[in-house]
Write a protein that binds this DNA or RNA. Sequence first.
DNA 1: ATTATTGTATTATTCAGTTAATACAATAAT
DNA 2: ATTATTGTATTAACTGAATAATACAATAAT
Lengths: 119, 119
Amino acid sequence: MDWNLDDGRPIWTQLAEQLTRLIVSGEYPPGSRLPAVRELAEDAGVNPNTMQRALAQLEADGLAASNRTAGRMVTEDRVVIDTRRRDLAKKHIAEYLTAMAQLGYSAAEAAELLREGEK
Amino acid sequence: MDWNLDDGRPIWTQLAEQLTRLIVSGEYPPGSRLPAVRELAEDAGVNPNTMQRALAQLEADGLAASNRTAGRMVTEDRVVIDTRRRDLAKKHIAEYLTAMAQLGYSAAEAAELLREGEK
DNA sequence: ATTATTGTATTATTCAGTTAATACAATAAT
DNA sequence: ATTATTGTATTAACTGAATAATACAATAAT
């Protein structure tokens, strides 16, 4: 997969976000097993330590838990996952509106431009 | 003013973005004089070197130019400014749609949620 | 003419993020 | 029982971002 590690923010932060997206979008279903730390790290082209840090964040968020040698599992709690999905959506909506407002676009204009696709 | 230096990205990047917003939104009109580097730095609570770096970016973008001791002026070229404003808007639109798509929301849903405000 | 203010450049230091190279304990797989 | 794989921890080194402390040249203001 394409990990898209572009902007200047810490890599482990971006990795955590990416993993979170994979979970809330269902590509890593509830209760499923995540790839091993070393495997994920190689796939993303980062140091295992960096990936470990990202995964630690996922655990802190309650999205995953590790069973030591049995690997790491996505939480079975769909409420946690869905809540996270909705919260992220709300965050993106707010950020979009704020960004557009700072450019001088009203909320109505911001919504209208979305419908047009671009311009 | 509130500079909102929050996320983990380099501060000079965020400063440049903030200054750009002030210009494209018209708070720093075309041809007007920008505050001195040291003044801006103090206001933002950052080192003058860091603010200088942000301003260098603005010049590279053609949004401002320095007249040595006469201070630094916003470009008079309204086309440059307006183009930049539109490009930033397009970027935010694309980013919003991408972010929502990664969460599993269609473009229609993303637009709908905007209209509802939240949920 | 003198002074203050401007943008700019330089050097050193600190700090967080990242990589690297291991090491260890637990346990699934054989 | 042995081996391989798992998550985890540790230490060192490197890098870029940021701060700090200056310094300098140009010129507007006095």
